[in-house]
Design a binder for these strands. Structure first.
Length: 460
RNA sequence: GGCCCCUUCAUCUAGCGGUCCAGGAUGCAAGGUUUUCAUCCUUGUCACAGGGGUUCGAGUCCCCUAGGGGUCACCA
């Protein structure tokens, strides 16, 4: 049985890098009919994990990720960690260190001044004397003094790190609270994890966690360190990089399946395939196909994917989605016409809403260049004549509008643009937009006449 | 700086020693369809970081150099 997890720290919202990691874990668990667990890494009590959890679940819900069992909060498990700390202490695998923060800082400074790598000098590792008064000790774990710590990474292959790189790191602070690398190892083991897929930035934590596994006699899971997503500047995505909050994408009019498809293709691939449904991913995903190198966030591709998914969405769904963007088509009897006229122009739902409003609402102003371009020569007279034609024929269907236009062009022996351009400016205010027959049909005869009359006044 | 990881078009990537004068996608450009715009279709543009090996043969294996990234807390 495959058991994976997503273990964010409570930073307030789920960002897209985190979502990708979660997605990889989720896919792998689901593909293998395993379990996908959630855990909040809130050993640092100053952060609000309730709100963070809410934000994460909101995002999960939007993109369609679910999880098994109850989420685990590390802040509620201190007694468990305490037990293991005592055990290590008793077995002599961990020890109390009475070095104060100030002393440590001083040591570090000296080491840096000497050009050495700053690290704890293990001075209390075998300390037998009487401890200094008034110092609350931290607990440090005994890391191996020599040799190499190695493990097989599911993505990068064999990773070897010299034991000298891992010092006797702190597993419990002077206030008794346990630290990250210690609790991660314990929980990953206790939760029965078989596969840990996490960001590359955790690569260095793995040997430390292995020290814990080793001291406790736990069997470690398989690790996969996925390369990070870089921003446009080639650096690790950080909070300063703008739209990182997953929910921000919802607000901007992205479809969850577009985001998922985009994210999964950042680092993972399956031959030349670009478009993946969730079902396909569930079929095809394997962490062994994840790239070794970092990838950059590229908005153009996301936009393209989003446009693709919008074009392929049912009108029924779009109507529902559009409500969040100020367009309510629920009562309209021309839903299909409206959407077919606008769908292909939109990269986001926001765009789509704007396109629709462009047709549905009378133009507030006319694009100056468009006016100039459209109303050259006899354009005004032609438009006036066309208006008369409309009033006379009273078209009702899209086909009738189409025929009126065609007949008019034929009768006057003009190119379509001669009437098309001024008409379009009259209807939507500029030169690009939906087909005129469908636009007029959607707008309705009375309103079409009004808009035409209005533009005619405007150019007096 | 130490250590670790990485390096194919601008970007995401295929490639797992010969079928690659390197394929797909996005972007960009041109053309076609069209009632403008968009869609769609076609074509084009653009890359194996550099240098050494190994091999009959290297984008693919090894080494070095360069570049990029990550990480070095009583944060997670």
């Amino acid at each position: 049985m495959v058991v994976t997890r997503f273990a964010p720290s409570p930073t307030g919202y789920l960002h897209i890098g985190g979502l990708r990691t979660a997605l990889f874990n989720w896919l792998w668990a689901r593909k293998n009919s395993g379990k996908f667990l959630l855990r909040i890494e809130d050993t640092d009590l100053s952060r609000n994990s309730e709100d963070a959890m809410k934000a994460i679940l909101e995002a999960f819900d939007w993109v369609g990720l679910n999880y098994d069992e109850e989420p685990i909060y590390q802040s509620k498990r201190f007694d468990i960690y305490k037990k293991y700390i005592d055990k290590l202490l008793q077995e002599g695998k961990a020890y109390k260190c009475y070095m104060s923060k100030e002393e440590l800082d001083k040591l570090r400074e000296e080491q840096i001044a000497r050009g050495e790598r700053p690290r704890y000098d293990r001075r209390y590792r075998d300390f037998k004397g009487t401890p200094p008064a008034g110092v609350k000790p931290v607990i440090r774990i005994k890391a191996p003094l020599d040799g190499v710590i190695e493990f097989e990474d599911g993505i990068k292959g064999k990773i070897k790190i010299d034991a000298s790189e891992v010092d006797d790191f702190i597993i419990a602070r002077s206030d008794g609270s346990p630290t990250y690398n210690f609790v991660v190892a314990i929980d990953d083991y206790l939760m029965g994890l078989t596969d840990v897929i996490r960001g590359d930035d955790h690569l260095y934590n793995t040997p430390k966690q292995l020290v814990v596994y080793n001291a406790l006699g736990f069997k470690p899971p398989k690790f996969y360190h996925v390369p990070l997503i870089h921003n446009e500047k080639g650096k690790k995505l950080s909070k300063r990089d703008g739209a990182l909050d997953v929910m921000e994408y919802k607000k901007e009019g992205f479809l969850p399946e577009a985001l998922i498809n985009f994210l999964v293709r950042l680092g993972w691939s399956h031959g030349d395939q670009e478009i993946f449904s969730i079902d396909e991913l569930l079929e095809l995903f394997d962490p062994k196909d994840i790239n070794k190198s970092a990838s950059s966030y590229n908005l153009d591709k996301l936009l393209w994917l989003n446009a693709h998914y919008i074009k392929n969405s049912s009108n029924e769904r779009l109507v529902k989605l559009l409500k969040d963007f100020g367009v309510d088509l629920e009562e309209s009897d021309k839903i299909d016409e409206i959407l077919e006229a606008t769908k292909s122009k939109a990269k986001t739902l926001k765009d789509l809403a704007a396109e629709i409003k462009k047709i549905l609402t009378e133009p507030k102003e006319y694009d100056k260049k468009a006016i100039k371009k459209a109303f050259k020569g006899e354009a005004k007279e032609l438009l006036e004549e066309f208006l008369e034609e409309l009033k006379r024929a009273k078209p009702k269907t899209k086909e009738e509008y189409h025929n009126i236009l065609q007949d008019f062009v034929a009768k006057k022996e003009i190119g379509f643009g001669k009437i098309g351009q001024p008409l379009r400016v009259a209807l939507i205010g500029n030169l690009s937009g939906p087909g005129l027959d469908e636009a007029m049909y959607i707008i309705g005869l009375d309103e079409v006449e009004r808009r035409v009359e209005k533009v005619l006044e405007e150019i007096e």
